[in-house]
Design a protein around this nucleic acid. Structure first.
Lengths: 233, 233
DNA sequence: CCAAAGGCAAGTGCATGCACTTTTTGCCTG
DNA sequence: CAGGCAAAAAGTGCATGCACTTGCCTTTGG
């Protein structure tokens, strides 16, 4: 096996382990319920068990991992109910960000939001799913930052990453790309005219739609086949 | 020194350490910026450094502790800006909980909310600050649970606990007790009649007022003198 | 043939040790 | 006497070792 520690550069060993494992969970390479054996992970990353244990502890504090005392750790199993609650929370959090963004974004932030958004229209026409996905992430990040509230930002980013495995396939639904862009458009328009209430509502609706689109996949294992992106690392 | 590990019963050593340290931070016994020396903590609780390290890692993941690689851990220092962002987030989160509660609380939940709320009126008349504080916590917890959304619940509880050191002294402001009760009353009334929007707004306003009341203390160190509650443990 | 008991292997939880980094201290120099 | 330097002290980061727990598998008695 490759993937030695040198590949997961920077920071302390523990941080590297946290990132490495979190990444594998968030990308769906490690599946819910999957056993996380300290020894194997240590061997896999060529470190001792100590940093692995610490990493698992932190991941458990973040909710990505479930730890049963004396019985090892597994990738957190998310119930349908909990998943629904996270999607719903996500909608509310995004609504807050959009609302605040409408009120607080600087001129520069507004301009680049609009600019990037308009630029992404091309991606829709081309049907460039991968690229649009990247833009989409950036778009939402702009909203989170635009809220000018670090705590909301952190909560939102954390929640979003926990939902990542379940959102993955959304753009594979036919026509989802164009719909997504239109929904973004409503949000951007509301923000540009400083209409907080409208921005909030549009953002909430947008996420709700995504969550419904994702619900199809949520009933199944979040990763049917492992994505190349994960395998590459 | 007493406070040996036997006092912090149950769970693994690491869990005990997490609780013990978190408690000391949240209650303000450990102050922001205060050094958290692994060796001293280990000695203090009569365990080895390993569980202490793990605990510090988890607390750092929770944001209660700040870790500088190779330079030890300190109790997280919260900037004015970050504190403000947390209070604002808190207001929004409570608004969501209240909104959802208005829509979703069961009959039993509504009844006991109302009941407890009415009962607490006595505490206001008596000026029983300690008791009211306890009731107040319970009241808010009811809202969080009443939202029937575990993720929002978790986010809200986590945020609230991080704000705990800064909320402590709020009821010492003259007349705050009665005001608090009246604000609760608006929330309860809105929830009872299922008016989600009104409940949300009332909850948001309530927290905003608390945050302003707390702002007075926030500029200063969160604990001037150590509370008996902490010392007792 | 099944159930309970016992033992074994795997794996977790914590303590300890050592290498390395940062901070402090004490001394020297200008 | 301040500034700078080097060595020591303090403290962190990780590896290793061992005791203990858990789950499984075998064994044995009914």
């Amino acid at each position: 096996m490759s993937g030695k520690r040198s590949l997961v550069r920077s920071g302390t060993t523990v941080d590297q382990m946290v990132r490495a494992i979190a990444d594998r969970i968030v990308t769906g390479y490690l599946r819910p319920g999957e056993r996380l054996d300290e020894g194997s992970l240590a061997a896999r990353f060529d470190v001792s068990r100590t940093p692995v244990r610490e990493a698992l502890g932190q991941l458990s504090a973040m909710g990505l991992v479930e730890r049963r005392p004396n019985r090892g750790a597994i990738v957190a199993v998310i119930t349908q109910e909990h998943l629904a609650s996270m999607f719903e929370s996500m909608a509310e959090l995004e609504a807050i960000c959009a609302r605040f963004s409408a009120e607080r974004m600087t001129g520069a932030e507004r301009r680049s939001l609009e600019l990037e958004h308009q630029a992404s229209a091309r991606l829709v026409q081309l049907g460039a799913e991968e690229d649009y996905e990247y833009f989409n992430t950036e778009f939402h990040s702009r909203l989170y930052r635009g809220a000018h509230n670090t705590h909301i930002h952190d909560l939102t980013v954390a929640t979003r990453s926990r939902l990542a495995p379940f959102r993955r396939a959304q753009f594979m639904l036919p026509g989802r790309l164009a719909k997504s862009w239109q929904e973004h458009d409503v949000i951007v328009t509301a923000i540009m005219r400083g209409d907080a209430a409208a921005a909030g509502k549009a953002a909430r609706d947008h996420v709700s739609i995504v969550s419904e689109a994702s619900a199809v996949f949520a009933t199944v294992d979040p990763m049917e086949s492992r994505l190349s992106r994960s395998a590459r690392r």
